[in-house]
Design a binder for these strands. Structure first.
Lengths: 212, 212
DNA sequence: GTCTATATCTAGATAGAC
DNA sequence: GTCTATCTAGATATAGAC
């Protein structure tokens, strides 16, 4: 809650205290351990002792690389957001015929988000979005905005689709998919109200193309 | 994590230990205090001391009404899910012309979810969905399933809408709205990628009606 | 049933040897 | 930079008086 801030410029080679850091084996080890523990139990329920044990280092080693628990958590979520869980839609994701493109986009997104680690990651970002609002916004910028921009631009290049508001339509497209994963996976809805993701994708593609 | 389970039958008049309970002033007081603290700070970061202070009772009084911290949290979320945050769509929510009905439904949902307490509530349910999966499912059943059933049935009664999959379409409808609130409010997206909710509603209504 | 006081444990963070 | 050992605060839960 204190003086932590998101680093953009120097994030790869040094941390705020100056002693550098990544590339170092221990540093990576700590982040790996921290990822498992934080994503599984959440910020507050994770102890530094547990992180140390999971990472196979001593607690003091963690504190020599990171300022405190908050600093470690921020570094972890930053890393994981901008690298591991950056959603790549593949090469030339926003080219092709509308029906093919939309279906491919939807299926790619759903398959990337189907991973258990990704589920835990989303849950954690949402859970800590009040304590760490900048991390939530980083997630939105990194993951959502790229897709939004690409799809909006694509819609704009296809006036024959007859979409009155391409940006709002892109929101509906991604929003439906994210909400589906949220309900089915994060909130354990698939056990009590199952639905094949194909049905969602089919209807979604058809709705968007329906105005043409 | 232990022997707690969701009570369905006796939830209103007794708790598991048998000494009954609601109606009691202290009991309500505790739940009120617990709501403020738990929804603001999350489960793990909330201390029983803080709940006691916020509720204006002693800690031991809490333990005489609730088995432990988990029991209190479960009772709280159950109560709040089934009463305070049950989304009512008003009288005869699923009657009328499609365009009017869909718009009214969307606007009702968005306005109910715009409340700060509701935002905090959703965040908490998602945050604790791994520790308390039954609470997440209770939320889905209570809030989502009612709307899903109503809208799906309505779609089925309107074959002229030409919707190939009414259930999937209802998912898209509610999903878009929930995801919008999640991005804009919970994840603080409105500061970095603002969008008027009217634009979403307009496009959503038009998409659904577009196949007709 | 309700309070004050307390037992017990575990957390984050640091000291000091190597 | 890395470890073991430790300090101190705050947590859950309980004991015992009224």
């Amino acid at each position: 809650m204190s003086g932590h801030s998101l680093k953009q410029p120097d994030s790869e080679l040094t941390n705020r205290s100056g002693h550098h850091v990544p590339g170092t084996s221990k540093y990576e080890q700590i982040l790996q351990g921290a990822m498992r523990v934080f994503l599984q139990h959440g910020y507050a329920s994770t102890s530094m002792d547990r992180v140390a044990a999971e990472a196979g280092v001593s607690k003091q080693t963690i504190y020599s690389h990171f300022q405190d628990k908050e600093g470690l958590f921020i570094a972890l979520i930053e890393r994981v957001t901008t690298r591991r869980f950056q959603i790549e839609f593949g090469p030339e994701p926003f080219h092709g015929e509308p029906a093919t493109l939309l279906r491919r986009l939807a299926e790619t997104l759903l398959s990337k988000m189907a991973d258990q680690e990704y589920i835990a990651f989303i849950r954690t970002v949402i859970a800590e979005s009040e304590r760490f609002p900048e991390l939530a916004q980083l997630y939105l910028r990194t993951v959502l905005q790229y897709g939004m921009h690409g799809l909006t631009t694509y819609f704009d290049s296809r006036p024959e689709l007859n979409l009155p508001d391409s940006e709002a339509t892109a929101r509906i497209f991604f929003g439906s998919l994210v909400a589906f994963v949220l309900a089915q996976e994060v909130l354990h809805g698939k056990e009590i109200m199952p639905m094949e993701s194909d049905r969602l994708v089919n209807s979604l593609v058809r709705l968007v193309l329906g105005s043409a």
